[in-house]
């Protein structure tokens, strides 16, 4: 990818910029937020946007801008770790399936079926009952959901490459399965993984919101965009602002990531188009 390429895909630029901007906003909250997010002051609750609190205060008198910053970070981290788990486990499985074939492939497919057979919400419910609700719970549930997605994408991409002449040549030259997977298959599916990763990131942010809504995601005093939206839900008719802020933030982040993902796909390799989308149903 080079800069001219970016110039030819303006939506990619917009999407990437917006997504990075939100991610930075979240990152900054690690060092600085306008107000400490744990600081509760009931006397100052439900302030609308004022000079001191740009986005007002919530039902516990906390600064909403600070909460949005930290919440964005949580949402990104949860979704991001979910993607890392998915890639870390799923990609080796998918590559192994192609490189070894036979029984390994069958096992990988069955494992992927089993993981896929457990709906993410059910996994989250079970994990929450086992270890208590929390961000970790959301990360694991989203990560497990991502594993078969990446396994299938990696396998699909690698299958196409495995039939190429240079792979056969490498095999003839005495390269083992693992080496083939690492040297020839993996580098060639990187772009595919980046595209899928962007899509799964946006799905993960939505999933975190959903899990928080049913009480299985992030727990106070920590915060996430989903948790903010949940807390504000019952106050919607009285203080709609409280849900508009985190709700819009989620919508914008997800749109930014999706536009970036679509743009990346177009920019990197137009032929990858369906493969990347195949598992977007979740």
């Amino acid at each position: 990818m080079n800069w001219q390429l970016l110039g030819r895909h303006p939506s990619l630029v917009v999407g990437l910029l917006a997504a990075v901007l939100f991610a930075l906003l979240g990152l900054v909250s690690l060092w600085w937020t306008p107000f400490p997010i744990e600081q509760i002051s009931i006397a100052r609750r439900f302030l609308g946007p004022v000079a001191e609190h740009w986005l007002g205060t919530d039902h516990l008198g906390r600064d909403i801008l600070s909460l949005v910053m930290r919440g964005t970070l949580t949402s990104f981290v949860v979704a991001g770790l979910g993607v890392i788990i998915g890639i870390g486990v799923g990609v080796p499985l998918g590559l192994a399936a192609v490189a070894w074939g036979g029984i390994v492939e069958w096992l990988v497919l069955r494992l992927s079926d089993i993981t896929f057979a457990f709906p993410a919400v059910i996994v989250a419910i079970l994990i929450a009952a086992l270890f208590g609700p929390g961000e970790i719970n959301a990360v694991i549930a989203i990560g497990i959901f991502n594993i078969p997605v990446f396994a299938r994408v990696a396998r699909g991409g690698a299958l196409a490459i495995a039939t190429q002449d240079y792979v056969a040549a490498a095999r003839l030259a005495g390269l083992g399965n693992a080496a083939i997977a690492a040297r020839h298959l993996l580098p060639n599916i990187m772009s595919l993984l980046i595209v899928q990763g962007t899509i799964q990131l946006s799905l993960g942010i939505l999933a975190e919101a959903g899990l928080s809504y049913i009480g299985l995601g992030t727990q106070p005093p920590a915060t996430s965009l989903g948790l903010m939206l949940r807390d504000a839900q019952s106050l919607f008719l009285i203080h709609p602002w409280l849900s508009v802020v985190p709700g819009l933030t989620i919508v914008l982040i997800v749109i930014a990531l999706n536009i970036a993902g679509d743009g990346l796909r177009d920019a990197i390799d137009p032929r990858l188009r369906h493969e990347g989308l195949n598992h977007g149903a979740g």
Binding site: F116, P119, A120, V121, I122, G210, Y213, I214, H274, L277, N278, H279, G280, A281, G282
Partner: peptide, 23 residues
């Protein structure tokens, strides 16, 4: 063909994924 695949996945997802909307 790709649309059918997506439909299959969506149906599987919907059966379990309705919990939030049910709430």
């Amino acid at each position: 063909l790709p649309v059918l695949t997506i439909l299959g996945l969506q149906f599987a997802y919907l059966i379990a994924g309705t919990i939030i909307v049910e709430n």
